[in-house]
Amino acid sequence: MALLEIRRLAVDFTGPRRVRAVDGVDLDIGREECVAIVGESGSGKSQLLLACVGLLAANGRAQGSVRFEGRELLGAGDPAAAVRGGGIGFVFQDAGGSLTPHLRIGDQLAEAAVAVRGASWQSARADAVRMLERVQLPAAAQQCARYPHELSGGMRQRVAIALALMPRPQLLFADEPTTALDVTVQADVVALLAALCRDLGMALVLVTHDLGVVASLAARIAVMYAGRIVELADAERFLRQPRHPYGAGLLASVPTLAAAAGPMATIAGAPPAPGTAFAGCRFEPRCGRAEARCRVEDPALVAGDGGLVACHFPLDAGPQP
């Protein structure tokens, strides 16, 4: 049994218009597995995570099923509350925002352990120092007495990660954990997350728009577009040979030094606005390979060649090594 099983998950937002942000997603996360969900703004990737832990905005509603160790997390009465912080940790994009400004960071970390695990304050404080050391914060013991605003962005993100890890979750959700950081610090945080997963035996779901971040970290990659998963594959396979035209386009658009000088690769058009209605394939208006069938028939996510792809005319898998 997978650690987290997501089945037919749909997320709707009510308002002047009804917007479906996530539209029928199936995804399994195994124990100690690192899965990346990549997609552009509005693809529904963040809402997918938030729905799993019951943190959708007030006008959002999730349907379908999310099971963590067999326990259903969706439904009336916020059943996900039991796993928030405990079984599933969450690291947000804005590290500063997830730390309370007027509390010393040592107290914030200790509080998490006291609240979730019922540890004593004394042992929780010692735990906090150990966790800060684990996330490679220099002079961890002294940092405990500092306030969040006294730290740099990279240090704050490390503290936020430590905070999420205090209750020793089995699964960590990280929503764009590096986007707000400087380029030179991003790689460090990614390497840190990889090391933590390995050492703590923890599964990780990483949501990002930056394939560069994913490339060095994830075992599997799920590509989301307009609320759906359009490709799901082993990271190695995907980076070598993406099969969905959108996945391939996304990969080609990442600016790399090898391709520097000369025009950059792009995907024509723009991601669909939230609430757009679709008849056929959602990527069809931007797709260079689209044919008549794509306009009328919605492609299902089907297995093939070491992964899943939702495309009538997937790119060639190429010769297998």
Binding site: P138, D188, A191, A195, G212, V213, A215, S216, L251
Partner: peptide
């Protein structure tokens, strides 16, 4: 810091020593 998408470089990046951040 510019990401490499070469799967062959993944292993190198993962082994990368985690540098402590400068404490400002």
């Amino acid at each position: 810091a510019v990401p490499s998408l070469d799967p062959g470089e993944r292993a190198r990046a993962l082994r990368r020593r985690v540098l402590p951040v400068a404490d400002g």
